[in-house]
Structures are given as C-alpha cells and as structure tokens.
Design a protein around this nucleic acid. Structure first.
Lengths: 355, 355
DNA sequence: CTGAAAGCGCTTACAG
DNA sequence: CTGAAAGCGCTTACAG
C-alpha cells in the first residue's frame, strides 16, 4: 500500500501523466484509449490503490448505484434467499443492495416507499411478493421514474419488468404425486385470498386433480393464513372427522409443519396414517422429522435473474432486460411425509396374504 | 405536487429569495436561521417536494450515509432480526442499510470486506458474530478508518465499539431450571470450538451446574456444529446408552430441534422421557410440537443499540457512543419440552400411591 | 443572522 | 486517441 490515504482521479492523472478525462475513460472501460496509455493508467491505479469515489461518480452520472429490495414478506428464509440472489449480481457490478422491509398493513405504505426511494435516490427496485402484485405501487414507481423488476406468480407486466414462478406447474407435480400414490380424498389448506399466488395454487391444484376425476369438496378446503398456527387449526378442522382425508396439501411449509404438529398431537402417524405435503422447501422442511415433502421455487436464482433485468433497465437497455429468462421451473422435492393411503396399504397387504 | 421533476437547492433558494447556503442551513438543522427565513424556506421545500441529493451531500460531506451489516452467520432469522434492529435506527436518520453476507471459509474474506467498504465508501459497519470476534478484521477496519460496532459474546473492545449478549447469564437460567426440575444427569451439546460464544455457554453452564454440585462428565458432552444434522447425531450418541441422560441442553435451537427429531425417531417421548432445551428462541422453536423451551437474546434490540452507537461514532461523538447501553439481559422462555425426570416422576407417583 | 466564492471528485460536451 | 472547460448539487471556510 503505497498510499493509505484515499487518492483521487487527479492523483492518478498526475502520476500517469495524462488528463483526468483519460483516467475516467479507463475507469469506465470506455473505448478510444491506446494500449500504452491504458496500461500506464492501470498501473498507477493499482499502485495508488485507487478506488473511484462513488458519491462523485453518482453526482456526475446522476445515479446512486444503489438497488433496493422492497418486501412485506415476513418469511426470513425467503427474504435471505432473495437477498443472496440479488447480491450475486450486485457483486459483479458497481451496485450495492439496500434492504427495505415494510408492513403491508401500514396505511401510508406506498408513501413511505416513495419517500425512501427519493431520499436515497435508489436507481432500481426489486419487488417481492405479495407486495409485487400492487399495480398502484407500480404506477407510483413509474411516476417517479424508478426502474423496477417484480417477482410474481401471475405475470401482469412485460418480460423486462417481471419474472415469475409457476405455481400451477408446481402444484400439478404435487397433485400427480398424490394421485400416483392412490390418494383420492385430499384435504387442501389454501393461502389468504389477498395473495394471487394462493389463488393460483388453489386453481392449479383443482385443475390437476380434475384431470384424474378427483374433486375437492368444500369440507376438504380450509382457509389458512400462511402461518404455522393457521396450519394447526386447519388441520384440526380437517382431521376431526369420522372419515378424515388421507392426505393434506398445505400451500406453504409453514402451514404444513403446523399440520404435522397437529397430527402428532392427535396421535396420527405421518406418513402411515396421513400424507402431508408443503410448498416452498424452506430450511425447516428438511429439518423436521419426518422430513417434509414439498416443492422448491428456486427463489435465489429467480431473484438473480430479476436483478440482471434490473441492471439492464438501469442501463436503459430494455431490450436486454426483456431478453433475459423470465421463468424457472419449480422442482418437486420428495421426502418422507408421503405414502400410500392407510386403507389401500392395508388392502394391499391383505391381498398379498391371500396369495 | 407542483413539480414532479427533481428540484435542487438552487430552485429552493431562488423561490425562497435566499442564498443556497441558507437553504443548506435549514436542511441540516443548523442554528442561526431567523424564524421567518426558516418558515419561508420550509414552505418552499414542501411546495417543491424537494429532497436533497444524497450523492451531492455525500460528496461535499465526504460521507456516503451508508451503513453496512456484515455477517457470516447463516441463520436466516438471526440475520433478519438483526436487520430490523439496524433499520429501526436508519429510518430515523439519514442513513441507509447495505447488507453484506460473506463466507467465513473464504480465504480472502477480509480483502473482500475491505474492498466492499472502499468501493461503496461505507461510513460504518455493524459486525455480527462469529465474524465480530476477529481482531484481525477490526485492525483492518481501523487501518482504513472505518467506524464499526460489534455484537459479541465476550467483550474485547470498549463500550463505544461493542455491544454484548450475556451467554453466561442465559445458560445459568437454563441450568437453574433443569436443577429445579430435579435433573442431575444432563447431556450437553456444545457449539464449535471456533465460536467464542460456544465456549462461554459451555463454561457458563458447567459453572452454574457446579453451584449445585452437578458436573458434566465427558460422556455427556457432545460436540455439535450448530446445525440440525449435528443435533441429530449428537442426540443419537447421547441417547444410545443403557442409562441415557434425563435432559439435553443443546447450545442452539437448530441442534435442539435435531435432538427432538432424533428422540422422536427413537420413540422417546418429549418431555415425558426426555427434557430438551435450546438456545436462541428462533421462530421454529415456537412452531414445533411440543414447543421448545429456549432462551431469547433480544437480537433485534441489541442491534438497534449497536446502530445507535455506530451513528454516534459516525458523528465522531465517541462519548455518546460509549454512553449508550451495551448489554441486554437474556430472557428464559419456558415452553413445553421440559418436565421432571422420568424416574423422579415415577417415584413421586409411587410415593403418592403409598400414602 | 446571511451570503459569495471556492471546492468535493467525478462526468458530459466539445474540440482537436 | 486525448484533453481543457464547465457542470453535477451540495458544503466548507470565510466575510460581513
């Protein structure tokens, strides 16, 4: 470290014997710099341990080089996965990631977000669901000229501004698996009506079951809230019956784990007496016993793609943003909470005994 | 919204009929502004919806108004709790929070951190454990003049730069609870040697048990890795014995949940046949069945205090930083995984029957 | 209590 | 391929 003090573009220019405009060209990888000049400047930059001042660049460029991740989703692992995805792209660019959690219940939610964006002069935002569904928020972002990319279940935007996970594809995997095991009487715990994703999962699941002539009667549909506690309560409602369903699909892992807790409390064996399937592949899904069968949406990779789009938008390159992949297929994760229905298992064994 | 376009300090000055220096005084809450001038300027600022350009302020102030949270802790809920704590303070100041997770295994870890700090010109950093234990990192931060506050178990810094959680106090609550229930044969699953916190919990637990004449023999101490899987394995090792311990204390919830999974697999009832206690009060602790008894370190509040210190340091007010509270007492959270030891319960019942 | 001048460290727009 | 001048939107240092 020749110089411990922060050196400026002027120091580099002086030592390299060039103008600061030339140094600026080197910093920004601009063309029209002779090979000789380039190497001279590069050497001095390294010698001096020079790093451009981001505030000065920001002021001149009229950019902050700041991206924000805005979300109202309380799920910690979802948020950190999304963060990792965004950071993987920030690290290879000049951008930093600012986090901005918020509460969807807040009545001045959008005002707060806009104020935050203006205050920090954020260049672009990544919107996570369920907040990403708000068209009002989008129009307010457009009003202040903020670039954005949203992660959503149902695409309500062009491919430059949206990346989507395929809920229908995911739940169809689940339906196929249940049907293949022989389940015909299935309980379903859905997410709150306010979430588009919840509707997608519900409709997709019904549709996939319908293909096999199986329907979901009203007494098999419980309304959950994506929380553990709601999973417990819905499970108790579904299972407190003379003929309970042989399987329960809860629309997220959190509720599915609630189902498992309720079943254990009631003395119902999983998967012997009850098959349970979740959704999300949260860290806990593989850390409970028995390990939960679920589906993985690849959030980290999705947000990485979203960030690539956003970076393109910040460069005003809408075409490039649109050309980046907008969808990733979900993966069904089979673990230990699914089995053939109890009756059928007994039947199968009985039949075998008769041979 | 009179003006939708971004207005500058010059616009405000012109419309208010004052110099931009005066507007600057108002923005920064400086004294020596007449009441009349103040209200005039304030009015124009509101009319114009004016927000100072943070890059311009940053350049002039030689500050970025960016704080960073640096951590190598993989625990999602720990990280998000810490984030909330930091954000609660950022929101009432002019600072934004940039996140920077990193891998402790990375051999150029410190180089990466320093590069990040210089690149983004971060004003101050919040260091989370276990990374916060590294004196090498601290000296490198000092070398580049970066302000910092560290969250740590064992205080190795002055009160302006450190905030600490009291592991010994926390584990002594656990020891007292176990002893009060009548447990004398206790299994202990410790965290990895590389973590100071793990050592604190081990020594503190031994010390607290020692006060009651109870010791921890080598065959009751398992070496965990703070992961679910290590909890499972340690529990199997501890429980596969003719006379297993009547209680197991695992040094984090993750491992304690592993213990519960192992016990269930082995057909051991919790808490009837085995008492289990964790550490952290993670969201899962209250979401499994039976709900896990554990201890809460109040991470969110601690990081909020740490951020208050950091903000003071950024103002070069070391005295104020030092005067802010540096410790919060942990809270013991009793749930459903603890009971009197099996033998003793039987004995008690037997004695009752003899009456 | 107020303001004119100079400067923070970069880039744009232009000229050569 | 290179550079001199002006400017981005603020603040500091100074003067009154």
């Amino acid at each position: 470290m020749v110089s411990n003090e922060k050196s400026t573009i002027n120091d580099v220019a002086r030592l390299a014997g060039v103008s600061k405009k030339t140094v600026s060209r080197v910093i920004n990888n601009e063309p029209n710099v002779s090979k000789k000049t380039l190497s001279k400047v590069t050497t001095v930059i390294e010698q001096l341990n020079y790093v451009p001042n981001p505030q000065a660049r920001g002021l001149a460029f009229n950019r902050s080089f700041l991206l924000a991740m805005i979300y109202d989703n309380p799920n910690a692992s979802f948020v950190t996965e999304a963060m990792y995805g965004a950071l993987s792209q920030c690290n290879t660019s000049d951008y930093e990631l600012v986090v901005h959690p918020c509460e969807s219940a807040h009545d001045k939610l959008y005002d707060d977000i806009i104020r935050f964006l203006k205050r920090a002069k954020i260049d672009g935002v990544i919107l996570l669901p369920p907040l990403s569904q708000s068209e009002e928020l989008i129009s307010r972002l457009k009003a202040i000229g903020s670039d954005y990319v949203r992660l959503q279940s149902v695409t309500s935007d062009d491919s430059a501004h949206s990346i989507h996970f395929n809920d229908r594809e995911a739940v169809s995997h689940i339906a196929e698996h249940l049907v293949a095991l022989g389940h015909k009487d299935i309980g379903f715990i859905r997410g709150p009506n306010t979430s588009q994703s919840a509707t997608e999962r519900y409709e997709g699941f019904c549709h996939a079951l319908g293909k096999h002539g199986i329907s979901l009667p009203a007494n098999r549909i419980a309304m959950g809230a994506y929380t553990f506690q709601s999973g417990v309560e819905c499970a108790e409602w579904l299972l407190n019956s003379d003929s309970p369903p042989s399987a329960i699909f809860a629309c997220n892992d959190e509720m599915a784990i609630g189902v498992m807790a309720a079943a254990k409390k009631m003395g119902i064996q999983i998967p012997g007496e009850l098959t349970v399937i979740g959704f999300d592949d949260s860290p806990q899904a593989s850390r409970i016993w028995p390990a939960l069968t679920t589906v993985n949406l690849h959030i980290r990779e999705m947000v990485s793609l979203a960030t690539q789009k956003l970076l393109a938008l910040c460069d005003k390159d809408i075409e490039r943003a649109a050309s980046i992949q907008s969808e990733l297929l979900p993966t069904f994760i089979q673990r230990q909470t699914t089995a053939v229905p109890k009756n059928q298992a007994t039947q199968a064994r009985t039949q075998t005994n008769h041979h």
